[in-house]
């Protein structure tokens, strides 16, 4: 049984509210008393996922599920999908536009940052359909 479930909509190219969902998720986890190190790793990964929804996707959602043993964060969007996931995962690769790069986004480190900070990272994508990223953060030290 999960302790808490929340879903946040993230709009395409909305730079004013970009980061709000991550900030809210961070506040929720802190309030629940989740370990500061986990909150930190999750916040970084969540922010990267949120920015990707803003700059690369046609819109999507971030969902948070807090369980007794772990926190699950899912980023799901409605397209356009990623043609070559392996390439997208490699650090430095980015298809971000010049405008977006001028704002300091598009370093090509987002997916790698997510994979590094999550305890489990899974990505699925289909061109024309969308991208789904599932990240799991353990709350209890593994035996």
């Amino acid at each position: 049984m999960s302790i808490l479930k929340e879903e946040f909509n993230v709009a395409k190219m909305d730079f004013v509210t970009a980061g709000e969902a991550s900030a809210q998720i961070k506040r929720i986890l802190k309030k629940l008393g989740v370990d500061a190190g986990v909150v930190r790793r999750l916040s970084i990964a969540c922010y990267e996922a949120e920015i990707n929804l803003v700059i690369h996707s046609d819109g999507g959602t971030l969902s948070l599920e807090v369980n007794p043993d772990d926190v699950v964060l899912i980023s799901k969007d409605i397209g356009p999908g990623i043609p070559d996931i392996e390439l997208a995962m490699s650090e430095g690769y980015s298809t971000a536009s010049d405008d977006v790069r001028m704002m300091g986004f598009g370093a090509g480190m987002g997916l790698a940052n997510m994979a590094r900070n999550a305890d489990k990272f899974r990505i699925e994508s289909k061109v024309g359909e969308g991208t789904l990223i599932e990240m799991i953060f353990n709350l209890k030290q593994e035996a």
Binding site: G19, I44, M103
Partner: peptide, 15 residues
């Protein structure tokens, strides 16, 4: 220290 001044700078600093 950054030359970026848009809202997301605050989001990153705050996180």
């Amino acid at each position: 220290i950054t030359v970026q001044t848009h809202m997301n700078v605050i989001a990153v600093a705050s996180l």
